[in-house]
């Protein structure tokens, strides 16, 4: 166990920050580029995971368990959100015939 914990001394925090930010930006990119609503949704999951990684990294570096508890709850919420979100997407597909984002344009002036 002790050697595993020495990761923290070996890999500095900035690396984890960099990794997390990168994953987050890739998630944003995915949201903006893809027109398929399901792929966009998956990009959201990617963003959430990036945040999770960051939190765990900080928790390890600070020796505080609270970060990991928070990650736990983020996972809980993400699960619930995916369930509902996919149900909504299914309904949209049922109503409009496709899950294209641009097909959802009724809420305009």
């Amino acid at each position: 166990m002790n050697e595993i914990t020495s990761t923290i001394q070996v890999v500095p925090l900035e690396y984890y920050i960099f990794l997390s930010v990168t994953l987050f930006s890739i998630g944003v990119l995915g949201m903006l580029i893809r027109r398929n609503a399901i792929i966009a949704f998956m990009s959201i999951e990617l963003m959430l995971n990036a945040v999770n990684l960051l939190m765990v990294a900080f928790s390890a570096f600070r020796g505080d368990a609270k970060g990991q508890v928070f990650v736990f709850f983020i996972m809980v919420v993400a699960a619930a959100e995916v369930a509902i979100g996919l149900a909504i997407l299914t309904m949209i597909h049922h109503n409009r015939g496709s899950v294209d984002i641009n097909a959802l344009n009724k809420l305009k002036w």
């Binding site: 923290i8 990684l53 765990v56 990650v71």
Partner: peptide
């Protein structure tokens, strides 16, 4: 990412 969690000592997660 799960692998990252492991080396960060967050086994449960």
């Amino acid at each position: 990412i799960a692998g990252h969690f492991v080396i960060l000592n967050a086994h449960f997660l």
